[in-house]
Design a protein around this nucleic acid. Structure first.
Lengths: 190, 190, 190, 190
DNA sequence: TATGAATGAGCCTTCATTCAT
DNA sequence: CATGAATGAAGGCTCATTCAT
């Protein structure tokens, strides 16, 4: 005889709720940063706090679910035979807004196994693309995967610190630096 | 309404308290990040909350006091006629732990005039050193201050994300990339 | 980060909590005035601070809930065909303790829409009763609603300033003044 | 060898400081209400906190000093042979802004002996003027000092609750009520 | 299983009061 | 005797987490 347990679509709502939570988290993280209240995520997803906790027991697991989708996109670049480093970076730049939260996630929860798994996947993507670029002699042989990972991380980092309007320009400037650094020695291109 | 005001070393403790607060803030920011509780700073400084607020009315003013010291060190590099970009970067790397919080400060409080003043000072340092390097033909002419600022920012950023043990190596790798990017075209050095 | 969440009687406690909060607020406002700590209200209601804020996001909303009940009582006087100004004033006098806080509320948060709504409701009550009294020729025609509102406000005000024991007498004295002021000119009653 | 104990005009500054504190308190109470921070009073007076506490050990003693001056003005009306109740009320209305804080003082610290002394002085003023008015047959004989005190208190009260712009009108309305209440029965004036 | 209210720890901030100089 | 910094208790508010329904 208590109040009115509003709605309860039952167990069937499970997967739908999960998806709604991930989408809401992506939006909330983008709007309010990685440290936004989790209650805001649940509210935006139209889901109870309890369900949030059931699907994602902690902040990291939620964030990992969000960025899983981002990294899947990156993997598609690697999977496409024509995917270049430029394509990868373009994608990273597009994802920059949410990537800011990704950076925060990585920063805040460096040691977490799930986060490291994310890093490994990115590393695979980078390695694949780098091999392709070096085979085409567009990147000098001395550059290794760690170098490119570092460049990608630094690029994503600065993008996150800059306001939306400045990002395109900052990205171009940074990318020009890295192209110069990666370029074969006798390469005259700019 | 303090029930039992335990002690009061008097106004003479003022300057000492201020210094203790800045030192405590440096340590706390390094340990727990820029968003660490201010109460932890007061506690670590062995100072009442009220005194913290008297000296530094908000988080930014405290952070600015911390980083002021860092930037003063950077300026000494610029002021020394033999100060090179390598010297500057070495210093930034040394400061990296706290610089992480600097980045957070800049990120979080972009619009603040005091923060912008900090940025301007760094920019002056970078411009001075860059001019010296270009005069000595150690950096190609196309590189401008914004490029180097970006490199410094990116370097400081990644260092912050990495665990202490990895920093030296990451710094070397990143710095190698930037040296390659900055190097005059026909320069054969590595 | 609650170390040990002692208890949780569940959502079913909601309505009971709300009622307990209103009752506690009534008591606390009466004891310690309108500016009493809200934490005291939560404590007295036996409810967590968070629940207080969930039910009443700010002090005004809590006060409005308290006074809503008082004004409902006043409205019942207006709704009863035999309700006279004397009845209304009797009620105000009974409510005087809490009415003091009402006055403070009105004083402190004059511009608030919710507070203005409260005022409007009182005004309606007064207008209704005044019309009845004037129809019965017990109050002279020159007196308007604003006059009576003013009298009610002044009465409530002084009552609040006086200690409990003195209130009855003060009320009679004040009411005698207002009766004299409201009385038709040639009325010989006292 | 500590900092620099700025200025210390020595004991001679005592009375001047006291006066400055009272003036500052009047202004601060008017601006920010009776519960304004005492530190604001010291600051506005250009005086150290310690001196404030030396002269006025608590809030009440400071407020009493402020209102002492107000009441002295009221006493001058009583002392002037032509001073009427209208004159008294005019003065109260003029003092209304600060009187709001007076009301708060009386409300908050009812039992305090110093506050009661203030009340006694007002009562004397009222008694003197009332006698004069009744001798001139401008107020009916049944009205006693307590009635007029009550009217003055109620008037001061409402004025305090109303915004500055509305005070003049509210005062007129209230005063019209009281004049009607006080007027000899067969008095046809309005 | 979903819901969403309840809980309470903890942070930020203000201010009365003390006291060394 | 004045100064003004130091102190710390207390109140406002937020939010992660639990749990009855």
């Amino acid at each position: 005889m208590p109040a009115t347990p509003k709605a309860n679509r039952g167990p069937s709502a499970g997967p739908a709720n999960r998806a709604a939570l991930v989408a809401a988290a992506r939006a909330v993280f983008a709007d309010a940063g990685y440290s936004a209240p989790l209650s805001a995520v649940a509210r935006r997803a139209g889901v109870g706090q309890g369900s949030l906790y059931r699907h994602f027991p902690d902040r990291v697991s939620l964030a990992v679910a969000v960025f899983d989708e981002n990294i899947t996109e990156l993997e598609q670049v690697a999977d496409s035979p024509e995917g270049t480093l430029d394509d990868l970076l373009d994608l990273v730049i597009e994802q920059a807004l949410v990537s800011k939260a990704l950076i925060d996630l990585i920063t805040a929860d460096i040691g977490d196994a799930r986060v490291e798994h994310l890093g490994t996947r990115v590393q695979t993507v980078v390695a694949t693309i780098l091999a392709r670029e070096q085979a085409a002699d567009r990147i000098r042989a001395e550059i290794d995967t760690a170098d490119v990972m570092l460049a990608v991380a630094m690029l994503a980092g600065v993008l996150g610190w800059n306001p939306l309007e400045a990002r395109r320009e900052v990205a171009q400037r940074a990318w020009a630096l890295f192209r110069a650094a990666f370029r074969p020695r006798d390469d005259a291109r700019d």
